[in-house]
Amino acid sequence: MARSAALDRRFHWWCLAPTLAVLAVVTLLPTLYLLATSLTPLNLTQPRTAWDFSQPGRNYTFLAADGRLHGSFWVQLKLSAWTVGLQMLLGFLFALLLNLRSRFLEALRTVFLIPMVLPPIVVAIIWKVLYTPDISPVHWALAALGWPMPALITHPAYALLAIIVADVWEWFPFTMLMILAGLQMLPQEMVDAARIDGAGAWRLTRHIVLPFLRGVLLVAALFRLIDSIKAFPLIFILTDGGPGTVTEVTNYYSYIQAFNFSYLGYSSAITVVLVSATVVLSAIIVRAVGWGPRSE
């Protein structure tokens, strides 16, 4: 071949250089700034605190002693576990249901896009309506059946549940679509072979489909898990972290510290912890998808 590898290489570098340069400016620099801020007691009411590195560990010491922060970790854990679990389950069931060769069902798939492409803030408004006793058809219907429901979002036992339901509604189509895409790659021969061996629907699912989908399931779950750390609009609109701190996840607490109380330094320290969690989870995804160093 007449083409030189050097020419290729140069072209690729020219393509990649602007991307990386801009990406570095818009993401790496801010991350360094965030790290630096987390080492200062920055508080905008006191401008002198801006580059004060005299006690770099101070925020991290507060972090270890902050009960409300630890509570928020726990809330986060509950929220993530329930939403990801339910989304995987529902996503899987719906994917199985829709994975039949039928034009009609294929057309219907589009409809499932709606919850996940809606602006999250609109999703929050939708659920605010359903959770407001004065106008909610759900409250009305249950009351008419003689089973009145308390206002969920101000009830400590149900507030988190209310958020979970809304979040699952918004995002189970994502896991569904992922699993559906995975299912469509399932070789028909495998299914046929199992059928010939006399496998019923349950065994087919358990021994053929699930193992085949393992990679897809893992990646879908990880994506949802990382996303669940970002939960904001639903909490902002529905509960504001309350009642008390029942629905206050770490991300939300960090937001309050930074933008309600102006403790930007402390909030940065909390955020550094969140980013670290994102890095670890993303690393697992990269491994799972096999996009690590290539060995083709």
């Binding site: 007691p41 508080n43 507060f62 002693a65 902050d66 009960g67 409300r68 101000t154 009830h155 400590p156 309350g242 009642p243 008390g244 701190t245 029942v246 109380f261 403790y263 402390y266």
Partner: peptide, 28 residues
Amino acid sequence: ERIATKQQGARDAMKQAQVEAIEDLKKA
């Protein structure tokens, strides 16, 4: 809110508010 939603008794809730307030004021 914690008291009104029966997550905590009044005494405990206010004690917690006190601890949190002190911590916060120290931060400031």
